[in-house]
């Protein structure tokens, strides 16, 4: 069964359907959260929170507003970003310093990518973006920086960052094609 159908059953309290949904989304959810949060123990905690939230709030999924997988991963991304932002706000400065000295985020992406067709494609497509498009997109999505922080880090005007983000995502879409 597709995630969309499963979510409807889950909203009705169907635990079997939730198990099946878990099989479909736990890998992407965990991988994404770990990519953003980094710390393994915290990643597991956030991923668990997200998966449990799927159970609790499945009824809030509205098929008219996008695919089920996109809803799930959007939720996972938000929670992951919340976690890194509050960790940063709490003054985990060494984290920030470590990241800054590591250079642009894409190098980290490149280091961490493992084999996998989708991974390979995304990487290839990220390569085709301009450096500023790529950095604007990955600093926000993979590192959880707001566009204002991205602008600051890249020493760019806010308007430029917003445009680079949009162009970057659109170009990524053209490169990856419409098929999920």
């Amino acid at each position: 069964m597709e995630a969309d159908e499963l979510l409807v059953l889950v909203a009705g309290g169907d635990q079997k359907a939730f198990e099946e949904l878990y099989g479909l989304v736990s890998g992407p959810v965990f991988g994404l959260v770990r990519r953003v949060v980094r710390d393994p123990a915290q990643s597991e905690e956030v991923a668990q929170e997200v998966l449990l939230e799927l159970w609790r709030s499945a009824a809030r999924y509205d098929p008219g507003r996008g695919s089920a997988l996109s809803w799930v991963l959007t939720l996972a991304h938000r929670r992951a970003v919340d976690r890194v932002r509050s960790a940063r706000a709490a003054g985990e400065r060494e984290l920030r310093v470590a990241r800054r000295s590591n250079g642009p985020a894409f190098d980290q992406v490149a280091e961490e990518v493992e084999a996998g067709l989708e991974r390979e494609w995304v990487r290839r497509c990220l390569d085709r973006l301009t450096a500023l498009q790529r950095q604007s997109v990955t600093l926000a999505y993979y590192d959880g920086y707001t566009y204002r922080e991205v602008a600051e880090r890249l020493s760019l005007p806010l308007g430029t960052v917003k445009t680079r983000m949009r162009d970057g995502l659109t170009r990524l879409r053209d490169c990856l094609g419409g098929v999920a």
């Binding site: 878990y22 890998g27 992407p28 965990f30 449990l52 997988l69 996109s70 989708e118 999920a180």
Partner: peptide, 30 residues
């Protein structure tokens, strides 16, 4: 909606197997 679907492509490429113990815990919590 369209931009979100693009962003989600970035998410898919990071997929990694979740720890087995996590499955038990989540299903238990449910």
């Amino acid at each position: 909606r369209a931009l979100r679907e693009d962003a989600v492509r970035l998410a898919w490429s990071t997929a990694a197997p979740a720890p087995a113990a996590m499955r038990d815990r989540v299903l238990m919590a449910v």
